[in-house]
């Protein structure tokens, strides 16, 4: 019975993920390898990713409205929302399925060692927070790993 439930859950998650497959634009630096690793994870999950290498990445982040305190190496834009840094794909999908009122996006500040795109293959994600932010400068905890 447990196996059946687990299988059903896995199938539902897969259907859910692909039903919410998104077109993603990622702004990154050509000198950043871990950004590319994160892009690969998003593509593996079924999303279509367009990579941009702006001349001034910092200025691009400012223009997009990424809070300075939440900065990381790359910024993804999906459906007008911002996703800064090494956010697990599952959290992005969950956010897009039900965006909080006034929400502007999610962020994983900095470069946590065991975040997607940084962690070794098969290594569990841990030791970082996924932080929600809105257009009023408020932050909230979306998930703790």
């Amino acid at each position: 019975m447990k196996t059946l439930l687990r299988s059903t859950a896995v199938i539902l998650v897969m259907i859910f993920s692909f039903a919410f497959a998104e077109a993603i634009t990622v702004y990154k630096s050509p000198t950043c390898g871990c950004c590319q690793e994160w892009v690969g994870l998003m593509e593996s999950a079924g999303h279509s990713v367009t990579v941009e290498h702006p001349v001034d990445l910092d200025k691009t982040k400012q223009q997009l409205g990424v809070p300075k305190a939440l900065g990381s190496c790359h910024t993804a834009v999906i459906n007008g929302y911002l996703f800064e840094g090494h956010i697990p794909e599952v959290d992005i999908v969950a956010f897009l399925a039900n965006p909080p009122v006034g929400a502007k996006g999610l962020a994983v500040p900095g470069m946590p060692a065991r975040s997607p795109g940084m962690a070794a293959q098969g290594q569990a994600y841990q030791g970082f927070k996924v932080i929600g932010f809105d257009d009023q400068g408020n932050y909230s905890l979306a998930r703790q790993y």
């Binding site: 630096s29 950043c32 900065g71 190496c73 900095g110 470069m111 946590p112 940084m118 030791g127």
Partner: peptide
């Protein structure tokens, strides 16, 4: 603060103090 467009601080903290980041 700016190398690569993101700066060393992303991996090492604002003043190279680590800040719990990978570097």
């Amino acid at each position: 603060l700016s190398a690569g467009g993101y700066g060393c601080l992303v991996c090492h903290g604002q003043v190279a103090h680590g800040a719990g980041q990978v570097g």
